[in-house]
Design a binder for these strands. Structure first.
Lengths: 237, 237
DNA sequence: CGCACTCCTTGAACGCGTTCAAAAAGCCTG
DNA sequence: CAGGCTTTTTGAACGCGTTCAAGGAGTGCG
């Protein structure tokens, strides 16, 4: 099921599918999402427009592969960089900054594409059932971030269980910031991430104190009831 | 060709413009955004498609009037309901719930339209320069919410100044939740709002304690540097 | 009255994403 | 090889948002 380059064993149809997908992603990156037409994709891939629609529901759903690729690379890069870092804030910064780095080549393309992804009914919404695998993989990254630090075991168990999902939401906030960021090399987003990480870490550590703990518990409960179901299994639930 | 009412102050062109706008908003509400075509708007208004484009840049920019109308009604309704409420959490719930009530007739339409509004370059983005007037009006609502409660004066002055903008961001979060909410009468969003308000109020009150104050100050500083400029004067700054 | 000038209005035409009936290519069985 | 069946491929056609050259319509001036 891995779709890198069509293996020799793959049937013809799978080859065509892959060819169309690769061509599309290449053109998206070269010309941007809007300027890449379905006709151009078909022509470049040497097939008909109708054929592209035989394999993919829509132009937007050609992005599915992009999601998977992106979360894979994010997980890999983060895994490498986390080696040796033990401070929670530091680890968090590494994970989020890794995303910014991985997403760099796609910034222009992603900004154009963002509005499509924001459609609640689109399979490409970050909350959709279809994007669940990619979402789960990124949440796992944050689980690693937490478990590899000293702060993890000291937390309230319910919060510790919830935190990876919350950090994924935090990443979505960063993504939103990044999409609107037009500075060179998205330097402003990077500065934002560098400043945010230690603050988040401090907030998490504060959550253990007797003064704030009751509030945190209630907030955790609220999240578990109202927000997490949407993150865990898509908006339809 | 047909002149309905002729206010002596309004020249012919203004009449046409208004006619197109009113027709568009009515059809959007009746049929939804996607199913309302520019051709249908023009036909229903008794003009040509090209004429609609003479007055409005695009189909999306026909929504501008909707934004203003919505924020006005939100401000009015909130103002009425705030009478007699003094608790900050209660006032916050009133303000946000008033939004949910005002937005009720447009839920289906807004969900379709949401993806257009999410485009960072669109004048209809909630962060855009063009939507600044509506945004400012809503932020003023939250300023009233804060000032009419007892918690306002006791806060750190920097936080107090920032809080209305932050509460507007919180409202944007609720809007996001609302857009994805498919329950009857968006009952789930309402429950979410009812549970959130007192928690936010508690968090604000906690911010005054010596234990958390340093963190809050740093977070406020971060917000002022990285986020508030975008809220105050649009993303271009 | 003719002329020029600006403001409005028109509808055909363009390029886009998407659909679909029909043709082509594989594939299996007798 | 023939015949039927499914899978794959085609490209014309549809409806959409949007553009634009062309033509009114009103107004002031000689």
């Amino acid at each position: 099921m891995t779709d890198v380059q069509a293996p020799r064993s793959a049937p013809k149809s799978e080859q065509t599918r892959t060819l169309i997908l690769e061509t599309a992603l290449r053109l998206f990156q070269e010309r941007g999402y809007d300027k890449t037409t379905m006709r151009a994709i078909a022509k470049e891939a040497g097939v008909s427009v109708g054929n592209a629609y035989y394999y993919f529901d829509s132009k937007a759903s050609l992005i599915t592969g992009f999601y998977d690729r992106m979360s894979h690379e994010h997980a890999t890069v983060t895994g490498e960089r986390l080696q040796g870092a033990e401070d929670f804030g530091e680890r968090l910064e590494i994970a989020v900054m890794a995303w910014v780095d991985c997403a760099k080549p796609y910034h222009e393309f992603a900004a154009q594409f963002f509005s499509t992804a924001a459609d609640p009914d689109s399979p490409l919404s970050p909350f959709s059932d279809e994007s669940y695998p990619a979402r789960a993989e990124v949440i796992q990254i944050f689980r690693d971030v937490l478990e590899g630090s000293q702060v993890g075991p000291k937390l309230d168990s319910e919060l510790a269980e919830l935190l990876p999902d919350l950090l994924w939401l935090y990443l979505m906030g960063v993504v939103l910031y990044w999409v609107f960021d037009h500075t060179e090399d998205t330097e402003r987003t990077r500065a934002f991430v560098r400043k945010c990480a230690p603050l988040v870490a401090r907030a998490v550590r504060l959550s253990r104190f007797r003064l704030v703990r009751p509030l945190v518990r209630d907030a955790v409960e609220l999240m578990q009831e109202f927000v997490i179901p949407k993150v865990r299994s898509g908006v339809t639930k």
